[in-house]
Design a protein around this nucleic acid. Sequence first.
DNA 1: ACGTGCTTGGATAGCGCTTTCCTGACTGTA
DNA 2: TACAGTCAGGAAAGCGCTATCCAAGCACGT
Lengths: 374, 374
Amino acid sequence: MTETRTAAPGDAADDPSAPPATPASRTERAAAVTLSDVARAAGVSLATASRAVNGSARKVRPDLHDRVLAAAASLGYSANGPAQAMARGRTSVVGLVVHDIADPYFSTMAAGVVRAAEERGLVVTIGTTGRDPVKEAQHVAALRGQRASAVVVVGSRTGEAPVQARLAEEVAAFEAAGGRAVLVSQESIPVDTVVLQNERGAGDLARALVGLGHRRFAVLAGPPGLLTARDRLAGFRAGASAAGAQVQDELVVHGDFTRDGGHAAMLSLLDAGFARGCVFAVNDVMAVGAMAALRERGVDLPGAVAVAGFDDISTLRDVTPALTTVRLPLQGIGEQAVHLLLQERAASPRTVHVDGEVVLRASTPDLTTGRPSS
Amino acid sequence: MTETRTAAPGDAADDPSAPPATPASRTERAAAVTLSDVARAAGVSLATASRAVNGSARKVRPDLHDRVLAAAASLGYSANGPAQAMARGRTSVVGLVVHDIADPYFSTMAAGVVRAAEERGLVVTIGTTGRDPVKEAQHVAALRGQRASAVVVVGSRTGEAPVQARLAEEVAAFEAAGGRAVLVSQESIPVDTVVLQNERGAGDLARALVGLGHRRFAVLAGPPGLLTARDRLAGFRAGASAAGAQVQDELVVHGDFTRDGGHAAMLSLLDAGFARGCVFAVNDVMAVGAMAALRERGVDLPGAVAVAGFDDISTLRDVTPALTTVRLPLQGIGEQAVHLLLQERAASPRTVHVDGEVVLRASTPDLTTGRPSS
DNA sequence: ACGTGCTTGGATAGCGCTTTCCTGACTGTA
DNA sequence: TACAGTCAGGAAAGCGCTATCCAAGCACGT
């Protein structure tokens, strides 16, 4: 990256009819227009101006109402958010806490949250944990300080009791302060939750794969501590054995929940002598990493080794062979979370269950017919 | 999605007459502890408490300092953000405005912004426009109301003058109110900017492709209004002709800046009789859509038709054949934007130029040797 | 003619914090 | 001992807004 300065073009993109907020020069700071200014200009009291500019239960006579709005417009008034928040005792901020916003799993959910929130005039802030579960609690605490009206935590579910307890505490404090909290995929804390049916989805997938004639399964299982990964592994195991197949322990290898994690895990599986069968990676990005590893090693894909993932990340739908996976309505999950947020808190925590849907594609051929599935 | 309620122990959820029978915990709102509470508990004045809890130029005697901190901790004090913002006249919020947070181009940049911001204790809010350039200005206006300390707009660059002017106005108003603004890829507004060298990158790509022996080029050019797309097209054209090749007008087809847009554009190109040559899609997601279309039509890829993209989206690095593209350091761009934000406003706007780097992969074979490149 | 209700504008008390400004206690020096 | 010169704590003035309370105006009904 090279740094340069461009001279400010004598650019006067000014529209005289628009808010005359243009400053005298680049260095001066304009004193912001306050509601008092508007009230004075409109010749009404501060109270009336407030009632006119922002809604209120109280009515304002139409002519005054118009006068205030006109004054506000001509002065370029824009309400001071923090002041309103303070007077009202709450903001219109919803905090979103995720591991990594660059990860499509989270960014797709975030898109759902943002969409639903913007529709309702809410602002969403985003906090990332970099997969450090301790930071989740910290973010919730910070959001409490910000007097956010709501928070959605897309969960780590580490299973580490103290960490979990800390989060539970912060969430409780957040709600005690009058905020609403929703967790995604985090069943162990008594608060409104969107539960992803990871176990069931993985089970369905296993059964479907057995149905296609696959019998020998390996699993790229993600980090041992991550409950999401654990559930998917457990579900897959259960589904497989219910259908009469088994997942041998030595064919379960752990690795990061990332593309590179899947790549490395697949490599170690190959090094251990795995050469034929079906590999279930507990999420799509790992599956893609695994496919890359297979390709590098010249393994026939999907002939010798079939691959399946989980999530159905949309940017990954065009890999070849097309990836069999379990579709999760990620954007819808984000929207669901906001809907939950919007509802009054119930006496006991609500839970919304979200099912995954098995999508069979070419990466897992139908061995009963010999042709690729779907 | 199925909605269910988890039964609370001794559930009375469906008894309409039941008063809020839940014990203290879930229904009551705890009065937040304020700094006054802390001051009283520590036996100091409000002023001293403030100075101790949050930094200040003024010093506080060590023993008092500790006493205040201890009191704050034991009461579970957490500063009221809006109140601080109001007293200080400024929040620590940086607003990020993008088209679509689910798009990896934007989410990767967002990750950079968030990372850099969190490092410095800043909160980032995200606003999306859904590719409607008018909403950019609206978001900036809203952020001014929120008294955000900074805003970064990852630009549409529609080239529509009135829309542009409106954004310029809002940005000026934002800065006049004391905020800092940075635009990404938006050269026409006099404000600090991170400029992506789209034209140059596309030119370099074209030259490299000609170097590989490609001569017949088609371009999937994105929406006609989008300057980013236009620049890439123009750069590619210029680069090609500088290297002695041409891009014929009838082989330039426009389409959405998305996977499906690329897919549709490629299809129409094929329908128009294009069957051999090299296709440049102005971004990676379009390129992937194009590859899907080629595959569907049974075109030999990359034998008959080679494909190149732009951006080097990381989740797309594992498509087959591997996609030739121009790498943009997206996360770094986000970080750059924050660095720019952190600096004092200069007398004239700063510009940081970011270069793309051509990455040749298997989707554009080396025709001079017959082997795939890279 | 006189309440009685209703409506609607205005004055004003905070919301929780930062930040002057003031004051008393201390230092060091003559 | 006296006196400027520091230093740190405390009182209090807002920051811009909302919301509560009051009062004035009006339309009725008796």
